[in-house]
Nucleic acid binder design. Structure first.
Length: 936
RNA sequence: GGGCCUGUAGCUCAGCCGGUCAGAGCGCACGCCUGAUAAGCGUGAGGUCGGCCGUUCAAAUCGGCCCAGGCCCA
């Protein structure tokens, strides 16, 4: 039995546990931060520094967090924390989007369950319930965000429903109103003739119905190609009642069209022998069958784009002495050659696509249908007929004008009201718009602002640019209850919108006092003041599109809080927000301030499952971040965020999470090992780099390299590069090499040995670097490690900065030199492994190989203690090539290793096998000295 | 159907302005250690670079088509 010197060995010891137990420790840390007022303290320490303002895109205050919101908030938090530690004042004010249909709906459903009708409830009461509902979810989400480690001004977040926020949103609208950038126009919206109200897509359900379908001739009046003279363009529709409202025909530019001469027709056919019709060639067969055309020939073929410039007559032209419209043929990308005729009847009043196409080409949007579904007097010959009864009258009229080519029946899915189950129609309604191409040239301003913004990744610029280039005017009105009212007055007689800054300010002031409910609560005359009479004005009852709300958050938050600056340094959201918030904010800000409210925009992808498919209940692949808090913990999730290339879609699944948990353990154990070996570290042990062995200086040089990399990666938001490098460093350079090699010195050298002091000094530097560099991501673990080293009631690593790396840690040449040394080491470990396989050795300390080196390598290794590096008990270096059967690695030429067992006795303290170990105390000379010093 | 984008070892990522055998870490397998121990060390096996066709003396890297997937439109 060997002597026991265990208590003379400096084994690592720390209170920082190996087992993280994040699910239970993290919530306690959140409480501690709350108690400390960490966010406020971070503001204090950063006072006066350059601001970094990441303006929070408000999530909707409805429901628990999902993976997407978790990803988004974690990424924001990592960026805020890293910017703070880079030396900025990163003020983060989280917010919530509160108005809008989803909440309105929830409340409405509550009513329905109680048998109440929403419309019977006073709007102000209804809105009160919406407010309460949003407020509840804000508290829930706030708790969940904090659980993820997100730091921000949770005590004073912003919400779009706060009274002052509603006032700001309204004032923003006021700016558009007063500068003439708000007009009342028409738009085709989904409409229920039963409830006499507009419906949102979410309130629509689809049911099968059978409709009368018709094929209609549009005689060409002006033609782009000679062959078309006298021919008719044929359209097909399932809604004959929309024909009177027709104002255009759409074609597909790349669709092949055939000009067909009718030969023979079946009995009863409405087609006429000799007439020429234009249809998509692929649909000719179908059209001929429907119209009873039994013989025909193709006279000409052409691409859709060759139809450009043609004009048709309206098929009802002359009916009721009216309908003498010019019907242009227009290109549209939604035209399909799969059904119908490849030519689409366009009624801008009665279809979303129709309306959009009409807007682009300046088509009229006639008021053809009243809110009860009856034709107005803009539809001569049909006035008063209900559109659902209109098919036959329209067919008769078409037949009378000779333009009905065929009729049929079709069963298809058609939108119905979710509430009344009645079929819906598209109907032109009065709506409020912000013009894109008005005198203020909002589109041009927005495009310029896009060019002046930094987009990360850069493709984001193309994406939003393409949308802004082609988007129609911004329709900002909704016929709903839960939102900021479009609090404007329209003169009853002139139709003029009242533009008076004093009126706007009176309304805004009222909103500030009692919320936007003031619009319904107060007497309009109060807003109008002495200069206008309420009875002369229509009080608009629409509310604002919630995108206008969120588009105004920069004004709510950045301009009004003393600790913030405008514009924001960064907006950061999912890539879907190119159409959403990035754009609404851009348009709002360009319309009111002439530039974007952000300097940079960063987008992330979507969270998908392990196979790359989107998460959905039906696929059953949904992972909840809240569940992961119970099984893994926030730091694992945070590590997952930075490990991935978040500009693309990010996969998540059990295997991926396990991988992050493994990576986490390595980082945690690295910190733990450092802490354990720094026990009782005293300043007098500290060594200057110039006094250190080269191995330790090499580690400092690696830190110096990171000292350049860390700020760069953080500024570029390139966390995956940084984190794989840090992980690699911990696993490879530290754990597998430096720590392993320095164990002997740390455990066994006398306390005053240069080697041990150098190692402890380096470990101290490593601690300070790693714990700070990791802190933005592993915010819980870094704090835990920090407090393990510097126990304190109030301390926090999050009040620190990234470390300044002294320039004298740089050691040019050492990186490459040690790369080469470690290649030689690999040959030795390889040789030992072969010995192990042969059961000749177990521990590497049982070996003392002979290493044959080529001359240049001998020079390289002149001052290097190879036995120390390879953790063998000895090594003899021989010049030359070495014997034939020596161990070699093809990728490391010039090194040959002949394994030999170490000779001598095993030191009972350091376990090296040396000839110099004394049989009496079983100690090597180094350990004898160490033991003696300890005894003294 | 249109716009933006992605597809390299089991996983996460490098490489991709064309020209050393396609790299890293993790995981995995095998072994060692038992003084970082629900740790640590060593060695090793894993890739038709989504598929097809082109351009080129030469392609993971350029072009086209197809397949799969994501976001936004329609």
């Amino acid at each position: 039995m060997a002597k026991d010197y265990r208590n003379t060995v400096f084994l690592p010891k720390t209170d920082f546990p190996m087992r993280a137990k994040l699910p239970e420790r993290e919530p306690a840390m959140v409480e501690r931060w709350d108690r400390l007022g960490l966010f406020a303290r971070m503001r204090e320490v950063a006072r006066g520094r350059e601001k970094f303002i990441l303006h929070d895109g408000p999530p909707y205050a409805n429901g628990h967090l999902h993976m997407g919101t978790a990803l988004n908030k974690i990424l924001k938090d990592v960026i805020n924390r890293s910017q703070q530690m880079l030396g900025r004042d990163a003020v983060y004010v989280p917010g919530w989007d509160c108005h809008g249909l989803p909440i309105e709906w929830q409340i409405e459903q509550r009513y329905r369950r109680r048998g109440k009708d929403k419309d019977a409830v006073p709007i102000v009461e209804f809105r009160r319930e919406c407010r309460a509902f949003a407020a509840e979810w804000i508290e829930v989400q706030k708790r969940e965000f904090k659980r993820l480690g997100v730091i921000g001004d949770w005590d004073e977040p912003y919400t779009t429903m706060a009274y002052d926020a509603e006032a700001v949103i309204y004032r923003e609208l006021g700016r558009f109103l007063l500068s003439g950038q708000l007009y009342r126009g028409k738009k085709s919206v989904m409409w229920s003739v039963v409830e006499k109200t507009a419906l949102a897509e979410a309130e629509v359900e689809y049911q099968e119905v059978t409709s009368t379908t018709i094929w209609v001739r549009f005689p060409l009046a002006r033609v782009s190609r000679g062959e078309l003279e006298g021919a008719s363009a044929i359209i097909w529709t399932t809604t004959p009642w929309t024909i009177p409202a027709n104002r255009a025909i759409a074609y597909g530019e790349d669709i092949d069209y055939a000009l067909v001469e009718v030969g023979e027709v079946a009995a009863g056919s409405l087609a006429r022998p000799g007439e020429r019709i234009l249809v998509a060639e692929t649909l000719l067969e179908e059209v001929a069958a429907a119209a009873g055309i039994t013989a025909r020939r193709i006279v000409a073929r052409m691409k859709g784009r060759e139809l450009a410039g043609s004009i048709a007559a309206h098929p009802l032209a002359g009916f009721a002495d009216s309908y003498r419209f010019e019907i242009p043929l227009l290109a549209a990308d939604f035209v399909s050659a799969e059904e119908g005729t490849g030519l689409v009847h366009i009624a801008p009043s009665h279809g979303a696509e129709d309306f959009a196409l009409g807007q682009r080409h300046g088509l009229e949007v006639p008021d053809t249908v009243a809110e009860d579904g009856r034709y107005t007097d803009e539809v001569p010959g049909f006035v008063g007929i209900h559109v659902f009864e209109a098919a036959e009258p329209v067919l008769e009229a078409l037949a009378e004008r000779g333009n009905l080519l065929a009729r049929g029946r079709l069963t298809h899915s058609y939108p119905h009201s979710w509430r009344s189950k009645a079929p819906l129609i598209f109907r032109a309604t009065a709506q409020w718009f912000i013009p894109m191409d008005g005198p203020d040239g909002l589109r041009a301003k927005a495009l310029r602002a896009i060019d002046e913004t930094r987009w990360v990744p850069p493709q984001g610029r193309n994406r939003i640019r393409a949308m802004v280039e082609t988007r129609p005017d911004w329709c900002v009105s909704r016929q709903r209850a839960w939102g900021v009212p479009i609090a404007v007055f329209v003169h009853k007689r002139t139709g003029e919108v009242l533009r008076d800054p004093e009126v706007v300010e009176r309304i805004a002031g009222a909103f500030e006092e009692e919320g936007a409910e003031a619009w319904w609560n107060r007497d309009p005359q109060e807003f109008l003041g002495d200069r206008y009479r309420a009875e002369d004005y229509e009080k608009v009852e629409d509310i604002l599109d919630v995108w206008f709300d969120s588009g105004s958050t920069h004004a709510i938050v950045l301009e009004r809080r003393a600790d913030m600056t405008w514009p924001a340094s960064l907006y950061l959201e999912g890539s879907d927000q190119h159409r959403g918030w990035f754009q609404s904010s851009l348009l709002e800000s360009c319309g009111t301030r002439g530039r974007a409210p952000y300097e940079a925009v960063l987008t992330h992808g979507f969270v998908v499952d392990a196979e790359g498919r989107k998460m959905s209940k039906s696929l059953g692949n949904v992972i909840s971040p809240l569940d992961l808090m119970k099984t893994h913990g926030a730091d694992i999730l945070r590590l997952w965020v930075v490990s991935a290339d978040y500009t693309e879609d990010i996969r998540i699944g059990p295997e991926i999470l396990q991988g992050q948990a493994d990576a986490y353990r390595r980082l945690r154990n690295t910190l733990r090992y450092i802490l354990g070996n720094l026990r009782d570290f005293a300043e007098r042990e500290r060594l200057d780099p110039s006094e250190m062995p080269e191995l330790d200086r090499w580690v400092l040089h690696r830190l110096w390299e990171f000292g350049r990399m860390v700020p760069r990666c953080n500024e570029d938001f390139d966390f995956s590069t940084l984190y794989s490098a840090l992980h690699n460093f911990c696993a490879n350079d530290l754990s597998a090499f430096y720590f392993d090699v320095r164990k002997d010195a740390l455990y066994c050298d006398p306390p005053d040995s240069i080697r041990r002091r150098a190692a402890r000094t380096v470990l101290d530097h490593l601690f300070h670097c790693l714990v700070r560099w990791l802190a933005p991501v592993l915010c819980f673990t870094a704090e835990e490690a920090w407090l393990a080293r510097f126990p304190s009631e109030e301390g926090s690593v999050h009040l620190e900065l990234f470390p300044e790396i002294p320039e004298d840690w740089r050691a040019p040449g050492l990186a490459e030199r040690w790369e080469r040394i470690r290649r030689v080491r690999r040959v030795i470990t390889g040789a030992l492994e072969r010995e192990r396989k042969e059961k000749r050795i177990g521990s590497s300390l049982q070996a003392a190989p002979v290493v044959h080196l080529a001359p240049e390598l001998a020079t390289l290794l002149e001052d290097v203690d190879l036995a120390e590096l390879a953790i063998t008990s000895g090594i003899r270096i021989e010049p030359g090539e070495g014997p034939e059967d020596a161990f070699r690695l093809p990728e490391v030429p010039g090194v040959a290793v002949v394994p030999e067992r170490a000779r001598g006795r095993k030191c009972a303290r350091c376990w090296r096998i040396l000839e110099t170990v004394d049989a009496a105390d079983e100690l090597c000379p180094r350990c004898r000295e160490a033991v003696a010093l300890l005894a003294a």
